[in-house]
């Protein structure tokens, strides 16, 4: 019944029937018409060659979720992305653009940001009170069209109060729409929480995971030691979801505390 317009063409009918059969068996996304595939948005490189080879970078105009335990490299990668977002040629060549951090933990270290290559004069820290309407604030910020990338550190605080949790559930589709319209990259960094805490607090992570175009899970592999001194650590990145490419890949990176550049393993 769906393909009545092609009934007269036996070739089309056979193709549609075959497609319907495969979709029924393997799911609706197993076969998608070419015109229905969303074009890949511009990407912001991460600065880690291995990661860029794997996924190309962080998509602009979409939500990216970086999750993992502490000291697994989430913030380092996010800071490097902010630095590259500032220098990405958006307007005039060589002109820097503004980026922002929704710093609800008030623990951002400008010195480390600078060492990651972020120009502090083009970076805004937002430190709202938890009781303020955070999602609305974020939405307004994105709609101002003056930020190339915004980092939310850390994402669980977006739903610390019941009102904010409600607004987050309600406002995420609007936020995704605003991101797509403005081309701003939203990067949410979230610590992994025990299952019982997610149950009690309603769980921000599942909600963000559902709406994220790219989800990378970070895992601390090992500390790097030289002459009984720690000089960095190795982290493993696992692409759990990627809207525009194959997911499930894994890559390892080395993060050295005093290094300017990071090398893949």
């Amino acid at each position: 019944m769906l393909y009545t317009e092609h009934v007269s063409d036996p070739k089309h009918t056979r193709f549609d029937l075959a497609r319907a059969g495969l979709q029924k068996r393997f799911g609706a996304r197993a076969l998608v018409p070419a015109r229905a595939v969303e074009p890949r948005p511009p990407l912001i490189p991460t600065g880690f060659a291995a990661v860029d080879d794997m996924i190309g970078g962080i998509p602009r105009g979409a939500l990216t979720l970086l999750s993992g335990h502490g000291a697994s490299g989430k913030l380092t990668l996010a800071y490097r992305v902010l630095a590259r977002a500032q220098h990405a040629q958006h307007g005039a060549p060589g002109q820097q653009g503004a980026v922002g951090i929704l710093d609800m933990t008030c623990a951002s270290d400008p010195d480390y940001l600078e060492r990651c290559g972020v120009a502090l004069d083009q970076l805004l820290f937002a430190r709202p009170q938890p009781a303020q309407p955070l999602v609305q604030f974020l939405l307004d910020w994105i709609r101002q069209r003056k930020a190339r990338a915004i980092l939310v550190d850390h994402a669980h605080d977006l739903a610390r109060t019941p009102a904010n949790a409600y607004h987050l559930r309600d406002g995420l589709p609007q936020m995704l729409q605003a991101l797509a319209q403005t081309g701003c990259a939203l990067i949410c960094v979230a610590e992994l929480q025990p299952a019982w805490q997610s149950f009690v607090q309603g769980g921000v992570l599942p909600l963000l995971r559902q709406h994220a175009a790219l989800h990378i899970a970070f895992r601390h592999e090992r500390w790097l030691e030289r002459d009984h001194e720690l000089y960095g650590y190795a982290a493993q990145l696992h692409v759990q979801r990627n809207k525009w490419a194959r997911s499930g890949q894994t890559v390892s990176i080395l993060i050295e505390f005093s290094a300017d550049e990071f090398a893949p393993l």
């Binding site: 502090l120 004069d121 937002a126 303020q132």
Partner: peptide
């Protein structure tokens, strides 16, 4: 104007 003094800039 809407949220008060929530935005900051940092300097090392």
């Amino acid at each position: 104007g809407r949220y008060g003094a929530v935005l900051h800039q940092a300097q090392v």
